[in-house]
Design a protein around this nucleic acid. Structure first.
Length: 329
DNA sequence: ATTAGGG
DNA sequence: CCCTAAT
């Protein structure tokens, strides 16, 4: 079996990563992963190894290679091999003729380890071996399930109906929420412009000066609640700091007043907040626990920025890949 | 429409 | 939060 020649020039960012079968002998399956970062990474799996261990091995290799955790599935004849307990030979992956039908599915997985229960050391990137399974579940846990009465009137960040009403602006009845929401929010800017001026402005050449206050009225300030920060942090831990659109969709889809730009900005301030002394922080204090997670995620994504983005975005397309020629990017 | 950063 | 250049 001949090697797939490595790309000669590798100065650009997007280069092919090929994963191929090197050879198979009677008792082991040898795989070779090649990329611009790791010229040659060999994997050897005993025929008696389980499907689960194969998946894990490939996942670890990809993790080491790309810096992002990836879910790996094994395919045989195009069908997923679910039983992780079976050995390769039992599954029929050990024989050479079946290797042609062998393939892997790669799916993006959580790329950062949820913060441990201790908040002392700046958590570094998780080692390939770090238990990944249990992390997943915690990340996919619905946002806020139980709501403990909070004296600070912290609006529960529910996945929807979050815009129910502005407790800040208790006003008319509740049947005209939509209307009041808009008007009240900008109440301070309600000062109407004298009709006369409007006329004048309309007649005079200066059309441009038509108070863009109507369009660019500064939105009323709405400090992020702790629960909102929690949701933001959780989303960023999983999605990174370069996909605010997705963060918005995942954690604030039904919260109209939080745009992805707002989330991006909030993250910026959170990182800053986490860096300054607690004394200099203002507003509703953000639990140190969350700030620690902010720092951890910030550090993590700063390191895996280049990789994760591509992996996540491109991987979606790669549903099934032939083991002999897995190409990313 | 989004991303990314400075204002 | 806003404003925008660059995608």
């Amino acid at each position: 079996m001949e090697h797939v020649r490595c790309p000669p020039c590798l100065q650009v960012t997007k280069h092919p990563i090929s994963l191929m079968i090197l050879m198979v002998c009677s008792c082991t399956v040898k795989l070779s992963i090649k990329s611009f970062r790791v010229p040659k990474l060999c994997i050897e799996v005993p025929e008696t190894a389980t499907v689960g261990s194969l998946k894990r091995t490939v996942m670890d290799a990809m993790t080491a290679l790309l810096g992002g955790r990836i879910h790996v599935g094994v395919l045989l004849q195009g069908k997923k091999v679910r039983d992780n307990s079976k050995t390769l030979s039992q599954t029929g992956i050990s024989s050479e003729d079946n290797l042609d039908a062998l393939g892997f599915t790669l799916e993006p997985g959580p790329l950062i380890a949820p913060p441990p229960l201790c908040y002392n050391e700046p958590p570094l990137l998780l080692p390939c071996g770090a238990a990944p399974q249990n992390l997943i579940s915690s990340l996919t846990t619905p946002v806020l399930d139980t709501k403990i009465p909070d004296a600070t009137a912290d609006p529960p960040l529910l996945t929807n109906s979050a815009k129910a009403m502005d407790s800040n602006y208790k006003h008319t009845s509740s049947q005209t929420d939509i209307l009041t929401d808009q008007k009240l929010s900008e109440s301070r800017a309600l000062v109407p412009v004298p009709a006369m001026n409007v006329e004048v402005l309309a007649v005079v050449p200066a059309n441009q000066k038509i108070r863009k206050s109507e369009l660019a009225r500064r939105r009323t300030r709405r400090p992020f609640s702790v629960s909102e920060v929690e949701a933001l942090v959780r989303a960023v831990e999983e999605l990174g700091t370069g996909r605010w659109r997705d963060v918005k969709l995942q954690a604030f889809e039904n919260v109209d007043h939080r745009t992805y730009v707002d989330l991006k900005d909030k993250w910026k301030t959170l990182v800053h907040t986490a860096k300054i002394s607690p004394q200099k922080r203002r507003g509703e204090p953000v639990p140190q626990e969350l700030l620690d997670r902010v720092m951890a995620a910030h550090a993590y994504w700063s390191q895996h920025q280049a990789n994760k983005a591509s992996i996540i975005l491109e991987l979606g397309e790669l549903q099934t890949l032939k083991l002999t020629e897995i190409e990313l990017w």
